[in-house]
């Protein structure tokens, strides 16, 4: 290899490094921008030229979680002094936190939507990965007539456009009363992720040597015991990676949530955009909501980094 590393090769390498750095900066700029907007004072969010350096604030997050109204008159010094620190941040922005007659702080719609997203994503992930792991083991270890056709059938259910599935599901849910419920979305996301989970887990199962279980069977384990005591621990990494992928998919999903929910079970993706365009939108609050929503995905992406290729190719490319 040393013979190939000429001086032109080395300068090409330097050029590539510069290129990669520039590309990375361009790709991260939108994410940086939304994250930094989440910490800006409102008057600096939409300036020209754009504000890059500023004193970060957490007032957008306070506003995100509370219901607010315009201040008609400035708060008296006593009112201001009596208010907790976070409420003063809202006063500083020319607004006040809405309180009930008994003085309880009124929450905005956001925390509720965030919880809905968590409930729906976690439950559907557990179901999809649970069923997917068993099924993948079945496909991996046993002879199945028409195996390829069945696997194609399973994958094709994942490829259906959400709106196509949503029309009949909406009509059926209306009959059984599942519209705008957590279970309605959980079922849809489980079905959507199940096919993915089967394909990905099958790849992980195929990698666990059959000899492990065979040795266990010889030692007197039943097949079930061998599955739970030998195979599952071996597949733990694969299960975790699959679960994170399923979680992210369910967490991010928009079209089903838009169609199937409107209030009680609404998740964050249809809720966050609905806040834009209602009067003068406060971009710092929208950015704060976006930031909190994207944060778990960013962390998971980092944890998943070695499995991204595999997950994105449905387990076909393993490397």
């Amino acid at each position: 290899m040393a013979a190939v590393t000429t001086s032109t090769e080395r300068s090409l390498n330097k050029l590539a490094i510069v290129g990669v750095l520039i590309v990375t900066m361009i790709f991260l700029a939108p994410i940086y921008w939304i994250a930094s907007t989440a910490f800006k004072p409102r008057n600096l969010a939409t300036t020209i030229p754009p504000t890059v350096l500023f004193q970060p604030e957490i007032s957008p997050f306070v506003k995100l979680f509370t219901k607010r109204s315009q201040l008609r008159t400035a708060p008296t010094p006593e009112q201001y002094a009596a208010a907790p620190w976070w409420e003063r941040l809202v006063f500083d922005g020319g607004e006040k936190v809405v309180r009930s007659g008994r003085g309880e702080v009124q929450w905005s719609g956001y925390p509720n939507r965030f919880m809905n997203s968590l409930i729906v994503a976690i439950t559907s992930t557990v179901l999809a990965v649970g069923m997917g792991t068993f099924t993948a083991y079945g496909f991996s270890r046993f002879k199945i007539k028409g195996e390829q056709d069945l696997l194609f059938f399973i994958l094709s259910t994942r490829m259906l456009p959400p709106v196509v599935v949503a029309i009949p599901m909406f009509l059926m849910y209306r009959v059984v009363g599942l519209n705008d419920t957590h279970w309605g979305l959980i079922i849809l996301y489980t079905a959507f992720n199940l096919s993915f989970s089967v394909w990905l887990m099958k790849g992980f199962m195929d990698e666990i040597p059959k000899e492990y279980e065979e040795a266990a069977l010889v030692d007197g384990y039943t097949r079930m015991e061998a599955f739970f005591k030998i195979v599952l621990p071996e597949a733990a990494t694969g299960i975790a990676a699959t679960a994170v992928f399923c979680f992210i998919t369910a967490w991010n999903e928009y079209a089903f949530a838009l169609i199937m929910t409107n209030r009680r079970a609404q998740t964050a993706p249809p809720f966050i955009p609905s806040q834009v365009g209602s009067g003068l939108s406060d971009w710092t609050v929208i950015a704060a909501g976006t930031f909190l929503f994207l944060l778990p995905v960013a962390i998971f992406t980092f944890l998943l980094r070695n499995h991204l290729l595999r997950g994105m190719s449905f387990g076909a490319i393993r490397k």
Partner: peptide, 29 residues
């Protein structure tokens, strides 16, 4: 590290990405 950072956009929610690109595309700011 650079590869992981570059992969971040595809993991995000399309709906929310659409939303914040609205801010980036805004004609005045």
């Amino acid at each position: 590290l650079l590869t992981t950072l570059l992969l971040l956009p595809m993991m995000l929610s399309m709906a929310v990405v659409g939303l914040f690109w609205k801010l980036l595309y805004d004609p005045s700011f």
